[in-house]
Design a binder for these strands. Structure first.
Length: 388
DNA sequence: TACTCGTGGGT
DNA sequence: TACCCAAGAGT
């Protein structure tokens, strides 16, 4: 038994009786014919495209995905082209989209499909689940969208929709809540046209049953909706309070040597794993995000001296005194980072071999490297300056 | 189980 | 401005 699946059942049928069920399906299909979204990865009948779009759409808005999807498909039009690519080029196409393990997993899965599956996409959920980066939702999405298998889905849009249809009070992210939602998803799913049905659910969640101010007047399912009946559509589903942001002050050093700059590939256990960055160090951490007193200042003379030591420890080379260039503010996960960018000339020494990959790169070649967002900004600035 | 992993757009 | 939120998966 695959641990990503659960067979535990709850009493969903009593919560949603057969008469209501057929009405829900009928109304939803009818609504979708007129109001469904038209998206680049829809109705292509190509599991590769469905897969790429689903991975990109994990925790990412449609608006953000569309340009990345188009670029990615132009560069890697099919499974063999993706499997044959270098990971660096895959990450380069992912740069700026976030959650970079998705790109690394896509690459791993592409290679596995070519070597172990004869470059054919598996059609069943258990086999899809065995692939890196494909969880229960994505497996259901690929199986139903690409192969019209009767596989249920639960994601942000359907979670909200199901919770409201059921007026679910509990925490939908808890184990119990998840079990209820997956049971419900399976219960409502028709045997035929499952892919179209799932897409209709998501379209409804994305355009009508939205998080705030759901447009219940235009909802084809309002007569099946317990939350609407009780006037509680604004309270369901229960929200989770995000962790407060922590202010962090960091420094990035652009080390220059004869027209090239030092880049470092970030390690497996670091944030932005696999991306390249200028050597980067934490300076200080504040208590709260709005405590700018400490983090907003430029690095002091003693901090800049300490930076030289840390560059030497990290890379093995010695540098001249770093000179402040510019400052970026960047929020990532729970941290609001103030990044002080400095420039320093190479003095003496040779690059270490043992640590993370280090490389001297000319500005004209920056575009070949997948960079962290802030590194890209700094790289662009440096390239513009040196081009003159 | 709870935490980690990013970023940009909307309000 | 400071939130909220988004087609989740891996550990």
């Amino acid at each position: 038994m695959n641990p990503k699946l659960s067979t535990a059942r709850m009493d969903v049928p009593s919560l949603f009786p057969p008469g209501m069920l057929s009405r829900l399906r009928r109304n939803l299909f009818r609504w979708h014919e007129r109001h469904g979204r038209h998206l680049p990865w829809r109705n292509e009948g190509d599991p590769y495209r469905v897969w790429i779009s689903e991975i990109m759409l994990q925790q990412t808005t449609v608006t953000a995905v569309v340009p990345y999807y188009e670029r990615f498909l132009a560069r890697f039009p099919d499974l063999p082209s993706l499997a044959a690519a270098d990971e660096r080029d895959v990450l380069r196409m992912w740069e700026g989209l976030g959650y970079y393990s998705r790109a690394r997993n896509i690459h791993k899965t592409a290679r596995r499909l070519v070597t172990e599956f004869d470059a054919q996409f598996p059609r069943d959920v258990p086999t899809l689940l065995s692939l890196p980066g494909i969880g229960r939702y994505t497996a259901g999405a690929i199986a139903s969208f690409a192969f019209d298998q009767s596989a249920p889905i639960v994601e942000a849009n359907t979670l909200r929709l199901y919770c409201r249809l059921l007026a679910c009070d509990g925490d939908p992210r808890s184990t119990q809540g998840q079990r209820l939602l997956w049971d419900f998803a399976e219960h409502v799913l028709p045997r035929r046209r499952a892919g179209e049905f799932n897409q209709a659910l998501m379209d409804l969640g994305a355009t009508v049953c939205v998080p705030t101010e759901p447009d219940c007047c235009r909802c084809p399912l309002r007569t099946c909706c317990a939350a609407f009946r009780d006037g509680r559509q604004q309270e369901v589903p229960r929200l989770v309070k995000p962790a407060p942001l922590t202010a962090v002050s960091e420094a990035a050093v652009a080390v220059h040597k004869r027209g090239a700059y030092l880049l470092r590939q970030r390690g497996e256990s670091e944030r932005w794993a696999g991306l390249w960055d200028f050597p980067r160090f934490e300076l200080a951490a504040g208590i709260a995000a709005n405590n700018h007193q400490q983090s907003g200042k430029e690095p002091s003379a003693s901090q800049r001296t300490a930076l030289s030591d840390r560059v030497r420890l990290l890379t093995g080379i010695s540098i001249e005194a770093p000179i402040p260039l510019t400052t970026f503010k960047h929020t990532v996960t729970r941290y609001r980072i103030t990044l002080h960018c400095l420039r320093a000339e190479y003095a003496t020494g040779r690059l270490k071999r043992s640590s993370a990959p280090l490389q001297w790169v000319r500005p004209s070649r920056f575009e070949l490297f997948p960079l962290s967002v802030t590194a890209r900004k700094l790289a662009t600035q440096i390239a513009a300056t040196t081009a003159r």
